[in-house]
Simulated assay, not measured.
Amino acid sequence: MLEPKRAWKTFESIEEELEKLREWKLISSKSTEVKQFYYKGAYTDKSVECKVTGFVDNNEIILYVNGNLHSIHPDYFLDMQKKDFSEDISVEEKDRDLDKSPKKERVNKKEKLIIVDIETPFSFSPKDGIREVAAIVVEDYEIVDELHLAIINNEDEYKKGYGSGLDNIEENEELREEFRNLISKYKYPIVAHNASFERSFLSYWNWVDKDQTFYCSMNTIKATEKLNSYKLKDLLNHYNIKDTQKHTAIQDVFDLLELLKVVKPKKWSKLGISSDNNIIKRNYIVDKKKQEEDKVRLELAKENIIENILNSKSIVFTGDTLKSRVEISELAIQYGGIVKSSVSKKTDILVVGENPGSKLTKAQELGIEILSEDDFLKLIGKS
């Protein structure tokens, strides 16, 4: 189980418990009693009864599940309560139901997916091309077909991963046709760990149609578990699958399959498409109280400068960083930077996390320095 990492407290009274449960929308605003809750996630094969036993804050509640404490975001837990747990009814109960309705047949729906990964020339920009594409077709998490597309020019360099030792293949008609034939043959959703990244490159070079369905495994896991990192390497380590990642497309699809065998999502996070240019729609829940708290925190950071390493440079952040946005912005300020919300000609550095948005494209067009989160932390000595 994901045990609490921060100090937490139990409810001081039944009144406080009811008040917090209403606040998290786990019970109705008029409810006067605690209902039975259920947990079903990576740590249980079927739904089990559980209890909300305490909380850290409105972003982390503490459950008592199967004799263990489990930390989870209240929104994720709320989603669990909305699921249909009928599949976990005992065999005897199912048989009785079938006897009552002899005409109804149980249908076991197979999970059918195409797991895809690509490697690029150390680039976030689709126009820089593709160097490796790998795909495995899975049915009920068993491989039924696979495809590996790469032109290796240096075997030793290729072993280093990240697209090294490979020729660009984005305009190779033969390889592109092989890939398109595979997804046309099976017509299954494509699953990629950072699906917006893979889709942006494959769509740009016409390896997939604009209406191709993509599922994002990273966002899918985010919706069920609150973890410090959702990078593939860290998830493989977290679920005790392996502690290394080769960063080659072919190995990454096999690693992702092993991860999905453990997680076995019941509900996938599907990429949405805007009406005009394939931009992912992101929905943000506005917490006004937290916004005010973050604003105060950043104002205090200006009064607590640690070292003027950034020398008043304009810093913009995009994508999902391991540190929260307020935390990494606070560090930028404390080390002499000026944090801005949008990219302009006056921007000095863009710090890029997972799933970067349109800020990245604009920064590339303007020739602005682009750093990863790790590079930024190294720059201020906080790696």
Rank of each mutant, 00 (worst) to 15 (best):
S312C: 09
I349W: 03
K242M: 11
E111Y: 05
D99I: 10
I328Y: 11
W205T: 02
L202V: 06
I333W: 06
W8D: 00
L259V: 00
I338L: 14
S184N: 14
R96E: 13
Q81A: 03
K270C: 14
G353I: 08
R106E: 13
I338A: 08
S101L: 13
H193L: 03
Y215A: 00
E173K: 12
E12S: 12
S123R: 04
P102T: 08
D167P: 05
Q245H: 11
L2I: 15
E3R: 07
D45Y: 01
S203L: 15
N172H: 04
S341C: 04
D156W: 10
I143D: 02
K83Y: 02
N355C: 09
G367T: 11
N228A: 10
V137W: 06
S101N: 15
Q36W: 01
K20T: 05
D88A: 01
Q364C: 08
M1F: 01
H193C: 04
S344V: 05
K290G: 05
D117S: 08
I309G: 06
N206A: 09
S28N: 12
I368N: 06
V253E: 03
K340R: 12
E177Q: 12
S344Q: 08
V352F: 15
E177V: 07
I169W: 10
N237E: 08
T361R: 14
E92I: 14
F201T: 01
W24D: 04
E369H: 14
S324M: 07
S28C: 05
W268K: 00
G367L: 11
M1S: 03
H193E: 07
K289P: 07
E155K: 13
H70N: 06
G129W: 04
E307H: 11
F254G: 01
A223T: 10
K159M: 05
N172I: 07
L69H: 05
A249G: 03
H70C: 05
I250E: 11
N206I: 02
L175H: 05
L256Y: 01
A195E: 01
G161S: 04
A195W: 00
K233Q: 11
E49P: 11
I27K: 06
I370P: 04
I61A: 02
R325M: 08
Y38K: 06
T361S: 13
V137L: 05
I14Q: 13
L331R: 02
E33D: 12
K359L: 03
D57T: 09
V262P: 02
E303D: 13
P356M: 13
D320R: 12
G54P: 01
D375C: 08
K159C: 04
Q36S: 09
V262G: 03
D145I: 10
G353P: 07
V351S: 00
Y230N: 03
S324V: 05
S184E: 06
L257I: 06
S86R: 14
I250V: 11
I273L: 10
K159W: 02
D140R: 06
E17T: 00
K104T: 10
S358T: 13
L271S: 03
Y186V: 03
H238Q: 13
L78T: 02
F124Y: 14
K9N: 09
K345F: 12
R282N: 14
C50L: 01
S217M: 09
E157I: 01
R282P: 06
Y284V: 15
E365V: 09
L310A: 04
K25E: 15
L2P: 05
K109S: 13
T248K: 07
I280P: 15
F77S: 00
V263L: 04
